[in-house]
Design a protein around this nucleic acid. Structure first.
Length: 814
RNA sequence: GCUCGGGUGGUGAAAUGGCAUACACAGCAGACUUAAGAUCUGCCGCUGUUAAAAGCGUGUGGGUUCGAGUCCCACCCCGAGCACCA
């Protein structure tokens, strides 16, 4: 018996696969359908950790399975190489981000090789190379040409530690997603992409996607569609009107005041008429200085100030009501102003209680008008509403919209995507500002796009890439970089020195894999057509409102521009869970609970590691790492090797097989069915356990023909690619097992002729016996009532009712 | 607060409304071995018993059903996401 030497055999096959380009995907293969299988490309942070393995390992099981099923599979890999961590680490270690990043890519590429995954290495994409980011810039220009990229000065989320602005999606509970620092608001000029133009389509097309419901729901909530109406409130003694957005127009009769966001422009416009100007000014100042976090942690208690001297007219009641300013109204949503209906909105109720404002109930559950202890937000019938009294509020809603001449309106929570970053290690934004041109155009901005022929705008090698509080990128310190002649008029001008959010890079990388070396376009149309959209996309759930939303937006934009013939990039999506440290905490170097995959591979081999990751829990679940758990599959693979190498040697020498044991044959075909179905459903854990059951049975009675042994090896191939390749090769096969075919099961063998009939009395199991699958109820009853244990359980009682489930059980009810 | 997930042996976990705990890990006992390790065999929810029989068991309480881990209602706990979005 030879002991399985994983080190020797795994590296042997990894070299052969790479050398023979076994997994290089041809754009088309005769008689085979293309299948684009993709894992989220890693960030080159240093080393591959077990989380990468958990993503990539089982994902590769799926890829190999699809390949065996007869698909022409492309499984590419690359690096999401721009971004803050590279820069921060580089600053700390005093080496250039590029050097650091490329060194990490080298290490990680080597590690990726040790996984033995079926990647097409020829399609490697690295986003920090000019050949790649040139197309970021090209895409940016396309957005700009179409009015979807625009520059705006406004308060933005500023991370004082990263010293850059962040997209809304990158702010988590008022803190920076990366470094957990409190985010501040900073007025700064920046570039945004008009993703909000696509809100409705991003929402609608979610329906057709084979994505986890949870992820779809999260995107849906993030887009946050809400249907309502815009109602105008005339300002008393003035020609002005204040627009509010509401989803509850039915409650308009109960609107007892209006609230403006502190940033609402009307506060300035009407400034002169405000009596208590200094109090208002104080409040605005105070609101302005609150950080995002303060607003969140203040327990949502309400603050505000009345604009004394000003009133508006409720268009339903025609009564004058006051105007207040409060920071619980957000300037970025709706119209930045609300009608307050304290009786039917929890926030308004709290505000009204705080400032002793009138509460008028207009919707009632039972038609009565009692004093409210809290806001009533359910449906009901109208009260205190004149002609509308006793009408269901849902009907009143539309009528009120009509009589006050309001417009129906849809709002979204989604904001435009802020893509400028005041950092060095990213794609330069291809824009030049020209003061001369500015004078000639009405906007006066002088924004001149870099001509396509001048792309890429190469990120210069500078020495000082430390960020500062100036709100400008380190590139602003390099005159060589930013001082350029204007491409339009030739006069001296300045480049944009901000770089792009790295989510820009990852919003289209999956297109580049189709044609990674193209110098003329971001990817050739035909090559895109042959591969995209992605058939199966696998990665963590942490990107649900970032990468996955942005990629959908890019795809829809490129579809509109006729570059793509599909509207959604990822037809199917699956998430892996998160593996925690053995202590149940998130793995981190500072906690010292990090599991090093290289050590595991060294000790147990890549096959054992990937198979254990498949086996340890449901794929989308994850959980704490159990240090001894891997022994299970490791022993299993050892037993497989012993069984096969020993038995097969004898068999091959004899060149004849024994007839397969019929019980085993049935189990084999059932296993073929189960393993195939389970892999398709991403239930890798039960697929592995089915394989264990099969091998356990074979070990007890290893009576199989050579052809059956081959089926078993094929079933194991996606899980243990190296070992099975070696066994396959030993059997005299020239071509890789991974290019062979997935076994088919025999329907007849999967179907059972007989079964174990369960006999229950009052639903409690009392006995069981073997019976034919097609046994009739009469026969079953007779058999069951004849059983000693049944007689005992029945005693003197007579059966009242007998439930018979064909092919399963009989239940005697007394 | 709202929206999703989830709660099953000592542990990771299985289970189209029909045998709860498959498959493993750990543990215990035995075989092999000078020994250790590796490997192999057996046991392994709780109560009970020499052993069995029997009873009890899927977060808690109720319900539907011949039959509930699974469906319904209420509650408790854990995890994730969102969070003053009118």
């Amino acid at each position: 018996m030879s002991i399985y030497n994983h080190k020797k055999i795994e590296s042997k096959w990894q070299k052969i696969w790479k050398k023979n380009q076994v997994f290089s995907a041809k754009d088309s293969l005769k008689g085979k359908k293309n299948f684009y299988h993709l894992v989220m490309f890693p960030y080159p942070s240093g080393d591959l950790h077990i989380g990468h393995w958990y993503n990539f390992g089982p994902a590769d099981v799926y890829a190999r399975f699809k390949r065996l099923q007869g698909f022409n599979v492309m499984s590419p890999i690359g690096f999401d190489a721009f971004g803050l961590p590279a820069e921060n680490a580089a600053i700390k270690r005093k080496i250039h981000p590029e050097k650091w990043t490329m060194a990490n890519i080298k290490t990680m590429t080597k590690q990726l090789g040790s996984l033995g995954n079926s990647y097409d290495w020829s399609r490697m994409v690295i986003t920090c190379l000019p050949e790649y980011y040139k197309w970021n810039q090209w895409l940016f220009l396309k957005f700009f040409e179409n009015g979807l990229a625009y520059r705006k000065k406004a308060a933005a989320n500023w991370c004082p530690s990263c010293k850059t602005v962040l997209a809304n999606e990158q702010v988590v509970e008022g803190r920076c997603e990366r470094c957990n620092t409190q985010v501040e608001q900073k007025e700064i000029e920046q570039w945004l992409l008009r993703i909000t133009d696509y809100a409705e389509r991003l929402l609608e097309d979610l329906m057709v996607l084979d994505w986890p419901e949870r992820t779809k729901t999260m995107q849906k909530n993030w887009i946050g569609k809400s249907e309502g109406a815009e109602i105008e409130f005339p300002v008393a003694d003035s020609g002005l009107k204040i627009k509010v957005f509401t989803t509850r127009a039915d409650t308009l009769p109960g609107a007892t005041y209006l609230v403006l966001a502190p940033e609402h422009p009307l506060i300035t416009t009407l400034g002169a008429r405000i009596i208590n100007q200094s109090a208002v000014k104080d409040y605005l100042e105070q609101a302005n200085h609150k950080t995002e976090l303060e607003r969140l942690t203040e327990n949502k208690s309400k603050t505000g100030v009345e604009l004394k001297g000003l009133n508006v007219i409720n268009p339903f009641t025609k009564k004058e009501i006051p105007i207040w300013v409060s920071d619980y109204v957000l300037v970025g949503y709706g119209t930045g102003a609300i009608m307050a209906v304290p009786a039917h909105d929890a926030r308004d109720f709290e505000f009204a209680k705080t400032f002793k404002l009138p509460v008028i109930k207009v919707v009632s559950e039972d038609g009565k008008d009692e004093e409210l202890q809290e806001a009533y937000t359910e449906d009901g019938v109208m009260v205190n509403s004149g002609d509308f009294n006793n009408l269901p509020n849902s009907i009143a809603k539309d009528r009120i919209i009509e009589i006050v001449g309001a417009k129906k309106k849809i709002n979204y929570k989604l904001r435009d995507w802020l893509i400028s970053r005041q950092r060095y290690w990213g794609t330069p934004i291809p824009i030049i500002y020209c003061k001369v041109c500015a004078l000639r155009e009405p906007s006066g901005q002088g924004i001149v796009p870099v001509p396509e022929k001048d792309l890429p705008v190469v990120l210069p090698k500078i020495k000082d890439f430390n960020p500062d509080d100036s709100g400008k990128s380190p590139l602003a310190k390099s005159e060589k970089f930013f001082k350029v002649p204007c491409p339009k008029c030739g006069e001296p001008a300045e480049r944009e020195t901000d770089t792009m959010d790295t989510f820009f890079d990852s919003s289209w990388y999956f297109l580049r894999y189709a044609d990674p070396e193209n110098k003329e376009v971001f990817a050739d149309e035909k090559r895109i057509k042959s591969w995209l959209p992605v058939n199966m996309y696998i990665g963590g759930a942490e990107h649900t409102v970032l990468h996955l939303l942005y990629s959908r937006f890019f795809t829809k934009f490129l579809y509109d521009q006729n570059y793509l013939n599909f509207k959604e990039p990822f037809l199917a999506l699956r998430h892996q869970g998160t593996i925690l440290g053995p202590d149940g905490q998130k793995m981190s170097k500072s906690r010292g609970n990090v599991i090093d995959p290289d050590e595991l591979v060294e000790k147990f081999g890549a096959d054992s590691v990937r198979m254990h990751l498949c086996f340890m829990s449901e794929y989308n679940q994850g959980g704490p790492w159990n240090p001894t758990g891997i022994l299970g599959v490791h022993r299993f693979l050892g037993r497989v090797w012993n069984l096969m190498s020993e038995k097969l040697k004898v068999k091959i020498e004899k060149e004849e097989g024994e007839k397969i044991n019929p019980v085993l044959e049935k189990l084999l075909h059932k296993t073929i069915k189960k393993v195939g179905e389970d892999i398709e459903a991403f239930k890798f854990n039960t697929a592995v356990s089915a394989l264990m059951i099969l091998v356990n049975a074979i070990e007890k009675n290893p009576q199989l023909e050579i052809s059956n042994w081959k089926l078993v090896i094929k079933l194991l191939a996606p899980f243990a690619p190296h070992m099975t390749e070696e066994l396959w090769n030993k059997l005299g096969n020239e071509e890789s097992i991974h290019l062979s075919s997935w076994p088919e099961y025999d329907e007849k063998l999967v179907a059972e002729e007989d079964f174990e009939l369960l006999i229950q009395v009052n639903g409690k199991l009392r006995d069981k016996l073997m019976a034919l699958k097609n046994i009739s109820q009469e026969e079953a009853e007779k058999l069951a009532l004849g059983q000693e244990k049944v007689k005992e359980a029945l005693g003197a009682k007579k059966p009242k009712k007998i439930i018979f489930v064909a092919g399963r059980l009989i239940n005697i009810v007394v």
